[in-house]
Each structure stands twice: as structure tokens, then as C-alpha cells.
């Protein structure tokens, strides 16, 4: 199974383990979306990881897969090894700093998509003003052009980051095609993917939140 943004050196088991680290407690579908692997492949990896004691499954309405303490530690080791062998820490740090400059703007945009000023009062954006929505969407597109540069640098430093570019572009394309929940609301929305990227950068550089 090949998937954008992965390389043969990044094993599927690590991709799945690390996806849980960045996505948090979740189900197969979201791990598949995060890794680009198929759901059966994800499940197979998760079962192996569970045998190794790195992940566990919880049943119930809010159930799913999550890392164990051992899994979190294993992920931290593999992330550190990966960064060491790539020898690209400086580039990742540089990209992270540029990410932090973009981050507040993305949050402004998400807020603007959710809340629309009406006679000076912010109210839930009911998407009844096409002009307003178009303005916000335009700014997302403009933002994405700048985000793309940072993502490209990250992918060069560590190829597994390439998956974020694919997911962000997909979210934006779907929003532009009229699926309004792909900016801030759906589980594969621009905002959620961006935040997983944030979590991933913190995990990769071992910076506490």
C-alpha cells in the first residue's frame, strides 16, 4: 500500500502509532484519513500495536483506539530517531516558527467562518450571506497559499508531513465545491487537520503544549 507523503523508511506501524498520537483517541476512519492507509490496513496495524501494548481499544458510544503510556513513549522514541537520522531538526524548527506566525490568522479565519458580524454583533454564521462567505473563503485560499510553502518545507525535512498538504488541499477544495463544513466543522476540516499538524510539530520537536 502506498500513500502520499510516506516513504518506505516510514513504516505503516509507525504512521498509525503516530497518527493516534496527533489525532488522539479515535476510530479507524480518522486514522485512515490521517495516514492515507485503507481502514483494513489501519486495523491490522492497530491489532499488532495492541499486542505490543502500545495501543488499546475501548468499546462504547465514545469508544475507539488510543495510545497507552508505553505507546506514547514508543512514539516519542521513534519520532526522535526519525528526526535524528534525517538530520533536519533545524529546518523543522524553522518551519514551526513560521507555522506559529500563521496560526493566529488561521484561528481568525475559523472564527470569521463561524461567527458573522450582524449590526456590530457577532452571531453564528448561518451562511445566508453569500458575499460574506465568499470573502472568508477567499481569505482561506490566500492563507493556504502561504501555508503551502511551510508544508512544502516540512515535507522536504520529513516526508511524512506531506500527508498534511494533501489533507489541507482536500479540505479546501471540498469547501470551495460547496461542502461548507470542510473549513471548521467536519472531522477532516481544514481547522482540524491544521491542528493535528500543530500537535505533530509539538510532538516531533518534543515541545510541551
Amino acid at each position: 500500500m502506498t500513500h502520499p507523503g510516506s516513504t518506505s523508511s516510514t513504516g505503516a506501524d509507525f504512521l498509525v502509532l503516530h497518527a493516534l498520537r496527533c489525532v488522539g483517541f479515535t476510530g479507524l476512519a480518522r486514522v485512515a484519513a490521517a495516514t492515507g492507509l485503507s481502514e483494513p490496513d489501519v486495523e491490522s496495524e492497530l491489532i499488532d500495536l495492541a499486542v505490543a501494548g502500545h495501543v488499546s481499544h475501548t468499546a462504547g458510544d465514545f469508544g475507539g483506539w488510543g495510545l497507552t503510556e508505553a505507546g506514547r513513549a514508543a512514539d516519542a522514541r521513534r519520532v526522535a530517531d526519525e528526526l535524528d537520522s534525517a538530520g533536519t531538526r533545524a529546518s523543522v524548527v524553522d518551519a514551526f516558527e513560521r507555522f506559529l506566525v500563521l496560526n493566529p490568522e488561521l484561528l481568525d479565519l475559523c472564527t470569521a467562518w463561524q461567527l458573522r458580524p450582524v449590526d456590530g454583533m457577532l452571531t453564528a454564521n448561518d451562511h445566508t450571506s453569500p458575499g460574506y462567505d465568499a470573502r472568508v473563503l477567499d481569505r482561506f485560499v490566500d492563507f493556504d497559499r502561504r501555508a503551502e510553502v511551510v508544508c512544502a518545507d516540512l515535507s522536504r525535512a520529513l516526508p511524512r508531513f506531506g500527508r498534511y498538504r494533501v489533507r489541507l488541499a482536500n479540505a479546501l477544495a471540498r469547501a470551495r465545491a460547496g461542502e461548507l463544513d470542510y473549513l471548521t466543522d467536519s472531522m477532516e476540516s481544514y481547522h482540524i487537520v491544521w491542528f493535528q499538524l500543530h500537535e505533530d510539530l509539538l510532538a516531533t520537536l518534543d515541545i510541551p503544549r
Partner: peptide, 10 residues
Amino acid sequence: SPLDMHGIAA
């Protein structure tokens, strides 16, 4: 953080 999504949902 994104790690809290299931908690926020619940």
C-alpha cells in the same frame, strides 16, 4: 488540543 476532540464531543 486535537487530542481532546472526543472529550469535547462527549
